[in-house]
Amino acid sequence: MQIETLKDVLHWTQQFHHNLSECLSHCEDKNVDERARIMLDYLSEHEKVLSGVVSGFEKSGNEHALNTWCYEFVNRHPITQHVHCDAPFAELDATQIMEVVSDQHQQVIELYRHLASRADIPAARELLETLQALEEHEMMRMTHASNRLEDY
Protein backbone atom coordinates (compact mmCIF):
# COMPACT_ATOMS: atom_id res chain seq x y z
CA MET A 1 0.00 0.00 0.00
CA GLN A 2 1.37 3.39 -0.99
CA ILE A 3 1.01 5.88 1.85
CA GLU A 4 1.13 9.53 0.91
CA THR A 5 -1.53 11.32 2.99
CA LEU A 6 -2.96 11.08 6.50
CA LYS A 7 -6.04 9.44 4.98
CA ASP A 8 -3.71 6.68 3.75
CA VAL A 9 -2.22 6.39 7.26
CA LEU A 10 -5.74 5.99 8.67
CA HIS A 11 -6.57 3.37 6.07
CA TRP A 12 -3.36 1.52 6.91
CA THR A 13 -4.22 1.68 10.64
CA GLN A 14 -7.74 0.42 9.99
CA GLN A 15 -6.27 -2.50 8.02
CA PHE A 16 -3.71 -3.12 10.78
CA HIS A 17 -6.50 -3.54 13.35
CA HIS A 18 -8.61 -5.62 10.96
CA ASN A 19 -5.75 -7.97 10.08
CA LEU A 20 -4.72 -8.34 13.70
CA SER A 21 -8.31 -9.16 14.65
CA GLU A 22 -8.49 -11.83 11.93
CA CYS A 23 -5.20 -13.39 12.97
CA LEU A 24 -6.06 -13.46 16.67
CA SER A 25 -9.39 -15.06 15.86
CA HIS A 26 -7.75 -17.57 13.52
CA CYS A 27 -5.26 -18.63 16.20
CA GLU A 28 -7.85 -18.90 18.97
CA ASP A 29 -8.97 -22.45 18.12
CA LYS A 30 -5.39 -23.65 17.76
CA ASN A 31 -4.16 -22.57 21.20
CA VAL A 32 -4.40 -25.25 23.91
CA ASP A 33 -4.14 -22.80 26.85
CA GLU A 34 -7.61 -21.77 28.06
CA ARG A 35 -6.48 -18.34 29.28
CA ALA A 36 -4.72 -17.75 25.99
CA ARG A 37 -7.91 -18.64 24.08
CA ILE A 38 -9.90 -16.22 26.23
CA MET A 39 -7.26 -13.53 25.62
CA LEU A 40 -7.26 -14.20 21.87
CA ASP A 41 -11.06 -13.95 21.74
CA TYR A 42 -11.11 -10.71 23.74
CA LEU A 43 -8.30 -9.10 21.75
CA SER A 44 -9.81 -10.19 18.44
CA GLU A 45 -13.12 -8.52 19.28
CA HIS A 46 -11.31 -5.43 20.60
CA GLU A 47 -9.30 -5.11 17.39
CA LYS A 48 -12.46 -5.49 15.30
CA VAL A 49 -14.04 -2.58 17.18
CA LEU A 50 -10.88 -0.47 16.82
CA SER A 51 -10.86 -1.13 13.10
CA GLY A 52 -14.38 0.27 12.89
CA VAL A 53 -13.54 3.31 15.00
CA VAL A 54 -10.53 4.19 12.84
CA SER A 55 -12.63 3.65 9.73
CA GLY A 56 -15.07 6.20 11.13
CA PHE A 57 -12.27 8.77 11.45
CA GLU A 58 -11.28 8.00 7.88
CA LYS A 59 -14.83 8.60 6.63
CA SER A 60 -15.85 11.60 8.75
CA GLY A 61 -12.57 13.37 9.44
CA ASN A 62 -11.68 16.88 8.35
CA GLU A 63 -10.90 16.60 4.61
CA HIS A 64 -8.17 19.22 4.88
CA ALA A 65 -6.46 17.21 7.61
CA LEU A 66 -6.99 13.87 5.86
CA ASN A 67 -5.43 15.18 2.66
CA THR A 68 -2.29 16.40 4.46
CA TRP A 69 0.80 14.91 2.86
CA CYS A 70 3.12 12.79 4.98
CA TYR A 71 4.99 11.40 2.00
CA GLU A 72 8.41 12.71 3.13
CA PHE A 73 8.18 10.94 6.49
CA VAL A 74 6.96 7.69 4.97
CA ASN A 75 9.77 7.71 2.40
CA ARG A 76 12.33 7.86 5.19
CA HIS A 77 10.50 5.43 7.51
CA PRO A 78 8.47 3.07 5.33
CA ILE A 79 5.30 1.66 6.83
CA THR A 80 4.98 -1.99 5.97
CA GLN A 81 1.83 -3.97 6.34
CA HIS A 82 2.72 -6.60 8.89
CA VAL A 83 1.50 -10.11 8.32
CA HIS A 84 0.39 -10.66 11.89
CA CYS A 85 -0.22 -14.36 11.46
CA ASP A 86 3.54 -14.82 11.23
CA ALA A 87 3.39 -14.41 15.02
CA PRO A 88 2.65 -17.80 16.51
CA PHE A 89 -0.32 -16.70 18.65
CA ALA A 90 -1.44 -20.32 18.68
CA GLU A 91 1.68 -21.25 20.64
CA LEU A 92 1.88 -18.30 23.05
CA ASP A 93 0.43 -17.98 26.52
CA ALA A 94 -1.84 -15.06 27.49
CA THR A 95 1.04 -12.92 28.78
CA GLN A 96 3.11 -13.43 25.65
CA ILE A 97 0.12 -12.66 23.41
CA MET A 98 -0.46 -9.40 25.25
CA GLU A 99 3.24 -8.50 24.91
CA VAL A 100 3.16 -8.98 21.12
CA VAL A 101 -0.09 -7.03 20.71
CA SER A 102 1.16 -4.25 23.01
CA ASP A 103 4.37 -3.93 21.04
CA GLN A 104 2.49 -3.66 17.76
CA HIS A 105 0.15 -1.02 19.20
CA GLN A 106 3.08 0.92 20.61
CA GLN A 107 4.50 1.19 17.10
CA VAL A 108 1.22 2.70 15.86
CA ILE A 109 1.19 5.12 18.81
CA GLU A 110 4.76 6.18 18.03
CA LEU A 111 3.84 6.73 14.38
CA TYR A 112 0.96 9.02 15.38
CA ARG A 113 3.13 10.82 17.92
CA HIS A 114 5.85 11.46 15.36
CA LEU A 115 3.45 12.60 12.65
CA ALA A 116 1.66 14.93 15.10
CA SER A 117 4.96 16.51 16.13
CA ARG A 118 5.71 17.29 12.47
CA ALA A 119 2.24 18.38 11.38
CA ASP A 120 2.11 21.99 10.17
CA ILE A 121 -1.66 22.15 9.84
CA PRO A 122 -3.52 22.46 13.19
CA ALA A 123 -6.40 20.24 11.98
CA ALA A 124 -3.93 17.48 11.05
CA ARG A 125 -2.11 17.78 14.38
CA GLU A 126 -5.43 17.64 16.26
CA LEU A 127 -6.53 14.55 14.29
CA LEU A 128 -3.24 12.77 14.96
CA GLU A 129 -3.28 13.68 18.66
CA THR A 130 -6.85 12.40 18.93
CA LEU A 131 -5.88 9.13 17.24
CA GLN A 132 -2.81 8.81 19.45
CA ALA A 133 -4.94 9.33 22.57
CA LEU A 134 -7.46 6.77 21.28
CA GLU A 135 -4.74 4.18 20.70
CA GLU A 136 -3.18 4.87 24.13
CA HIS A 137 -6.56 4.61 25.86
CA GLU A 138 -7.38 1.35 24.08
CA MET A 139 -3.97 -0.06 25.01
CA MET A 140 -4.69 0.75 28.66
CA ARG A 141 -8.08 -0.97 28.39
CA MET A 142 -6.53 -4.08 26.83
CA THR A 143 -3.76 -4.15 29.42
CA HIS A 144 -6.25 -3.73 32.25
CA ALA A 145 -8.39 -6.59 30.90
CA SER A 146 -5.27 -8.72 30.52
CA ASN A 147 -4.32 -8.06 34.13
CA ARG A 148 -7.82 -8.97 35.30
CA LEU A 149 -7.56 -12.26 33.40
CA GLU A 150 -4.29 -13.03 35.19
CA ASP A 151 -6.02 -12.50 38.57
CA TYR A 152 -8.32 -15.46 37.94
Rank of each mutant, 00 (worst) to 15 (best):
L66H: 06
R148Q: 14
E135D: 08
L111M: 12
M140H: 08
Q96K: 09
E91W: 03
W12H: 07
L24G: 03
L24C: 10
S25C: 04
F16A: 08
F73Y: 15
A90T: 06
V101D: 03
H77L: 00
R141P: 01
I109D: 02
I109N: 05
M139Q: 14
D93V: 04
L134I: 06
H137S: 13
R35K: 15
Q15E: 15
V74R: 01
I38N: 03
I38D: 04
R148L: 15
C27A: 15
E99K: 13
H105S: 13
R113Q: 12
N67G: 15
S25T: 10
S55H: 09
A36M: 11
H77D: 05
H11K: 13
T143Q: 12
T5N: 05
E34D: 12
S117N: 10
L131V: 08
C70H: 01
S44C: 04
D8V: 00
C85Y: 04
L6F: 03
E47I: 07
L20D: 03
V49N: 10
T68C: 13
E47A: 12
N67P: 05
T95I: 14
A119G: 07
Q107E: 15
E99A: 14
Y112C: 03
D120R: 12
M1K: 00
V108E: 02
D151S: 13
N62E: 14
V54H: 00
H144Y: 15
D120M: 07
L50H: 13
Q132K: 15
M142R: 06
M139D: 11
C23P: 06
N31V: 08
I121H: 06
C27P: 00
H77F: 09
